[in-house]
Design a protein around this nucleic acid. Structure first.
Lengths: 157, 157
DNA sequence: TATTGTTATACTCTATAACTATA
DNA sequence: TATAGTTATAGAGTATAACAATA
């Protein structure tokens, strides 16, 4: 009608929703996740896959239930995630004698390699986020505030 | 084996993932949303439905495309949301002569009533979030920090 | 030809239940 | 009897493509 862009008329009053913490968290989380995904897509890593690799790298030899619990992911949904990482030969399931129902998880050499490259991408991305936030101090403040929500993890089952 | 609770062994090293802004945002957002949902479930309102009611209440007579854009929801996904609210007779579609492809959205009397009650629930819930965060000042800081992410909304289409 | 609202559809995430093998 | 891992499945939320009516 008037321009190249869509006519959206006068700006809306978003004062009501913009003061809702949950709404603002959702918008920020969606924004950051979408940016993350577009950067990690070439590596074949989703946010959940990357955080799993990091956690396994920092905690080699732990059980799936422990890792899933720490990530806030249910066991039932963690299983196919692990299977996917195993198919890429980034992590390996290893039987442990102590409890033959379970097993321990480790990074493979290939996994350590992918993680190294992913960590470079992550460092760049994190730097961009910190820049948007306004510096290291602002980042520390944000993480401290988010940490005050006492998240007891995903519902156990 | 040992206790009533699941044996998760020694605590994991979560230092690697806990410093990732996106990961921490996801955990906080999931936690707050789940708490929100359990409170709003009795009212028959999802987070998206509630935020839509608030926005329509603050901006009566606007077009779906404008509201969807402000909420970061795509038009295609906004349509069934509006249909649901209309079936509850909380909002009404009203033809406008200016552009007969479109229409304007308004709250009904029933909608204003539900919104009033929902706002009470929301105020209680928000107060709990503020309490967890450590006070009004902490809340303001959090919203200010989240606002620095320049979210340009959902991908247009 | 472009835009608005809509429908259909697919893909991801998450939640629940139930199975198996071990304990 | 309970637990660890798994499978199947259903429900949200969100993405794209395409259509009818209108501009």
């Amino acid at each position: 009608m008037s321009d190249l862009t869509t006519d959206l008329g006068p700006p809306l009053n978003t004062g009501g929703i913009d003061r809702i913490i949950g709404y603002r968290l959702r918008r920020a989380q969606t924004y950051v996740f979408n940016a993350f995904k577009s950067r990690f897509d070439p590596l074949g890593l989703t946010p959940a896959a990357y955080s799993t690799l990091v956690l396994v790298g920092d905690n080699p030899g732990r059980k799936p239930s422990e890792l899933a619990d720490a990530l806030g992911i249910q066991r039932a949904n963690f299983a196919p995630l692990v299977t996917g990482l195993e198919k890429h030969e980034w992590i390996a399931r290893q039987k442990c004698a102590a409890d033959r129902r379970s097993y321990s998880l480790h990074l493979t050499a290939k996994g350590e390699d992918v993680l190294r490259r992913a960590n470079v991408t992550q460092a760049e991305f994190e730097a961009r986020c910190v820049r948007e936030l306004g510096g290291e101090l602002a980042r520390d403040e944000l993480l401290a505030l988010l940490g005050r929500f006492k998240d007891h993890g995903a519902p156990k089952r």
